[in-house]
C-alpha cells in the first residue's frame, strides 16, 4: 500500500501541450507511471508522446478512466482547471504551481472536500509512491520503496532529504508535498491521517519549516496512544522573525510560528527531532526502530 497513489494509477495531464506538460509525460513514463490522457482545450484528437489529447477533462475521463490528474496550467487559469478536474469526478489531483491567489486555493480546497477528492498543492512538487507511481515533477532518483511516509512543506528540501533517507536504506511508502503556501489541499493533519491508516507505513518523517501552524498537527497526533512513531526536521532555525524566507507561508509572525516553539511542542509530544539535515537519517531510523519494537 501507499497513500492516495498506487501502481494502478491512470494519470491524466491537464495542460499536456505546455512545456511542463510535455516534459512530464516522458518523465512519468520513465518512472513506470501510466499516462493515459492529456487535456488541452481545442487540441482534442492530437497525441503527445503517444498519449491521446482531449479538449475537456470530462471527455478524457470518459474515454480513458483516468483516476489521477496532474494540472500544469498558469496560476491565472488554475482555479478553473482544477475545478473542472474535480467536477469531472477525478478523485486525486496535484496542482504544483506557485503564485496562486489565496482565495483560489481556498476555493480549490473547498471543492475537493465537497467532492470527496484529494488535492495536493499548490506550490508543491506533488506526490510519489516510489516504485509504484509518480504524480508530480520530483526527481525520481531520490526515492526508494520502503516503510516511511514522508510529508514535506518544501520541494527542494524533500528531494535532498529523501535522497539521504534512501541512501541510508530508509525507503518510503509515499512522499507527499503539502506545499509552501498558507492554504493547501491535503494539509499536514490530513496527510498524517492517511499515513496512519496505511498498513505499510511504519513511521512518519515530517519536513517542516518556520511560519504557519501545520507542525502542531503532528504534535497533536504524536500524543495519541495509537500514533505511529515519527521524526521531524524543521528548517529556518536561523531565520529572523518578520522576514519571508521564499515560501509565502515561511515567515515568523508570532512566537508559535518560531522554530523553537514548534520543536519544543514536537519534542514534548515524543517526535524524534533532527536538529539539521545531517541528523535526519538517524532520526528517521530511530523512529522506525520504535515501530519495529513490540509495544510493552
Amino acid at each position: 500500500m501507499s497513500i492516495l497513489l498506487d501502481a494502478d494509477a491512470r494519470v491524466l495531464i491537464v495542460g499536456i501541450t505546455g512545456k511542463f506538460g510535455t516534459f512530464s509525460v516522458k518523465d512519468l513514463q520513465q518512472s513506470h507511471t501510466r499516462v493515459v490522457a492529456g487535456v488541452a482545450p481545442g487540441r482534442g484528437g492530437q497525441t503527445i508522446e503517444g498519449v491521446p489529447v482531449f479538449s475537456s477533462v470530462a471527455a478524457a475521463m470518459k474515454e480513458t478512466h483516468a483516476n489521477a490528474a496532474l494540472v500544469y496550467v498558469p496560476a491565472v487559469v488554475a482555479l478553473d482547471a482544477v475545478l473542472e478536474t474535480i467536477e469531472a469526478g477525478c478523485p486525486l489531483i496535484a496542482y504544483p504551481g506557485d503564485g496562486l491567489p489565496v482565495l483560489d486555493a481556498m476555493e480549490m480546497r473547498a471543492a475537493a472536500l465537497d467532492h470527496g477528492a484529494h488535492l495536493v498543492g499548490p506550490n508543491s512538487p506533488g506526490l510519489i509512491s516510489p516504485g509504484k507511481a509518480k504524480l508530480g515533477f520530483m526527481p525520481s532518483f531520490c526515492y526508494a520503496p520502503g516503510p516511511i511516509g514522508v510529508i514535506s512543506r518544501s520541494g527542494s528540501l524533500s528531494y535532498e532529504a529523501c535522497f539521504r533517507l534512501s541512501s541510508a536504506g530508509l525507503g518510503q511508502t509515499s512522499v507527499i508535498g503539502i506545499g509552501g503556501d498558507p492554504v493547501r489541499g491535503v494539509n499536514a493533519a490530513e496527510a498524517i491521517g492517511l499515513f496512519h491508516d496505511d498498513p505499510e507505513t511504519r513511521a512518519i518523517v515530517y519536513l517542516g519549516e518556520i511560519g504557519g501552524s501545520e507542525e502542531y498537527a503532528l504534535a497533536e497526533y504524536a500524543k495519541r496512544p495509537d500514533a505511529k512513531p515519527s521524526a521531524a526536521l524543521l528548517v529556518g532555525r536561523t531565520a529572523p522573525a518578520g522576514k519571508k524566507m521564499g515560501h509565502a507561508a515561511a515567515m515568523i509572525g508570532s512566537y508559535a510560528e518560531s522554530w523553537v516553539a514548534k520543536v519544543e511542542a514536537l519534542d514534548r509530544a515524543g517526535v524524534v527531532i533532527a536538529r539539521d539535515l545531517d541528523g535526519l537519517a538517524s532520526a528517521g531510523a530511530s523512529a522506525l526502530a520504535r515501530a519495529m519494537k513490540p509495544a510493552v
Partner: peptide, 12 residues
C-alpha cells in the same frame, strides 16, 4: 536552490 534547502543550508 529552493526555499527549504536554502534554510537548511543556513541552519547548517
Amino acid at each position: 536552490g529552493g526555499a527549504g534547502m536554502t534554510m537548511a543550508a543556513m541552519d547548517a
